[in-house]
Amino acid sequence: MQGTPITTKASFPTTSTAAAARAKQTGDDIWRNRTDKINAELFALTYGSLVATLVKDYEDYAEVNTQLDKMGYNIGVRLIEEFLAKSSLPKCGTFVETADVISKIGFKMFLGITPTITNWSADTKEFSIIIDENPLSEFVELPDDALLPPPASTGGSAATGLWYSNILCGVLRGALEMVLLQVDVFFVSDVLRHDDATEIRVRLVRILDEDVPASDE
């Protein structure tokens, strides 16, 4: 159980319809016309091979979650460049806009999916990404011991059991950090763990300073 929903307000903050439509179009266009593709099953099996190897090597799901997050971070800090180059987006004005772009352009560009952005916190610093079709977890069934109860909904990353697609959290964290948004990203639920939905929570910690640190010469 996830506890109470973080917000049940009827109207979530949204970007203007025009901006949202534009983002969707950009994402679709990049996916359709400017993306080299590969068999999604090869991708799923390959990622599965990686996770399985980590589980075998570390013998500890919490550590595997951490490693996947780290790998994702490495990917994120590099991936942002491709993202910016291909999308040639102007700077996002608000965090709400950022979320929209992550879904409609980011996820679309790399995974061909457009997850739903929802569950905004009142201060619009937190939102959830709901993934209906997760290309990473095709063919996957988790063993019982990986299905330990989910952390409390306030939980943060102190997860128990395996968060199979945890690499996504790292990717988001790394990529957003490169555009000066420091975020916490963690899985709240995953259909692989028999939850109703696959949900990633993103929380804006702070907007980083653009100034180069003094020590950096």
Binding site: A40, L42, F43, L50, I167
Partner: peptide, 11 residues
């Protein structure tokens, strides 16, 4: 189904 070659390459 297809996914991007980039995503594969990163992984």
């Amino acid at each position: 189904s297809e996914t991007s070659l980039s995503a594969f390459a990163y992984v």
